[in-house]
Amino acid sequence: MNAIVCKDLCKTFKQGEEIITGLNNVSIIIEKGDFVCLSGPSGSGKTTLLNAIGGLDTPDSGEISIGDIRIDKLGKGALADMRLHNIGFVFQAYNLIPVLTARENVEFVMQVSGMSAAERSQKSHAILKEVGLEGMEDRRPAQLSGGQQQRVAVARAIVSQPTLILADEPTANLDSVASSQLMDLFTQLNRHHHITFVIATHDIRVMKYAKRLIGMEDGKIISDQINNDQTINVQTVNNKAQ
């Protein structure tokens, strides 16, 4: 089953007098449960594609479907609902709400979606335990390391059980240990919760975890291949799980 279908996506930006091409007739199909890395140099269109898939930005032309929903046809309110219930976001700079604790950051999304306090509390506790932050629930973002903050962001992204997680350079601000821990976590979530991952990155270490690698340049897809090294990482994860 297809998780994401993009067809002939085009997007241009105006920077002063110059017109910059963000996406140039991009068409891709990503299956449910896939683990995809979008790679390419800066300005290649990775983030633009990710934003378009996430409904954060609208393409100039083309079609985008998440599951059965044509999101390019949705209004602002419906897009917000779709993001709330179906998509989790992980950002390069974590983007946690600084005045809320780790637990409150995770619960915030659940409260917005109208979940009861008891259910929120139970779920946030379980998710934070799953991402390895047990005992740090009441710390605010400023009291956590970069890796821990990114784990809170991941917990926030998965707590409403989305079918899709979009991550934009999630390891860019992390050291190598924290990076590999985060990618191990992503791999586990992908395998155990069957969440589809689309990660924009130019970090080779991250690409190694992907099942599928899509290369981009100048707003176009220039390569799309299955990652043969990925099995090694899965094995590593399985070994760790044992």
Binding site: L84, F89, F91, V109, V112
Partner: peptide, 16 residues
């Protein structure tokens, strides 16, 4: 602004 943008990305509506 950045914080509000993040909350909107997470699915929070402007009215909230």
């Amino acid at each position: 602004t950045r914080e509000f943008g993040t909350m909107m990305a997470l699915g929070v509506k402007p009215i909230r």
